[in-house]
C-alpha cells in the first residue's frame, strides 16, 4: 500500500504530469529521495546546491509541516500522505 506523495498542479511536471506518486519508504527523507530517483526532473527542485532538501519547499505529513514533527527523519507508514508545496504559498 505505502504512502502517497502529492504535489500541486503547477509542480506536477516534476513527476511526469501526475499529481501523486506512491512509495514505500520509512521516512520523509526516503520519500524525497525516492521522488528524485524515480523522477530525475524533480531533483534540481527538491535539493539545493549543497544537496540538502530545498528550504524553498514546505513538506507536510498528513497535513502537518514536518518541521513540527521530526523533520526529514519523521517516520512514514502505510496510508500516510506527504504533500510538497512551495514555501511562498504559506503566506
Amino acid at each position: 500500500m505505502g504512502a502517497t506523495i502529492r504535489l500541486p498542479g503547477s509542480l506536477k511536471f516534476w513527476i511526469g504530469g501526475s499529481e501523486e506518486v506512491n512509495c514505500e519508504c520509512g521516512t520523509v527523507r526516503e520519500c524525497i529521495d525516492y521522488l528524485s530517483e524515480t523522477h530525475p526532473d524533480s531533483r534540481a527542485r527538491l535539493f539545493d546546491e549543497q544537496g540538502e532538501v530545498s528550504s524553498l519547499l514546505m513538506i507536510f505529513l498528513n497535513g502537518e509541516n514536518v518541521r513540527h514533527l521530526d523533520g526529514l527523519a519523521t517516520s512514514v507508514k502505510d496510508g500516510d500522505q506527504l504533500a510538497i508545496i512551495p514555501l511562498a504559498v504559506g503566506g
Partner: peptide, 30 residues
C-alpha cells in the same frame, strides 16, 4: 479538513498564522 475532502481537496497542508506572520515580518522570506 473533512469538509474540504468531501469537496475533492486532496493535498493536505496546514500552515499556522504564526508561521505566515514570521514570513511577512522584517527579514522574513515572503
Amino acid at each position: 479538513w473533512a469538509i474540504l475532502e468531501s469537496h475533492g481537496v486532496k493535498l493536505k497542508a496546514w500552515v499556522s498564522e504564526k508561521e505566515t506572520m514570521e514570513m511577512w515580518s522584517p527579514g522574513g522570506f515572503l
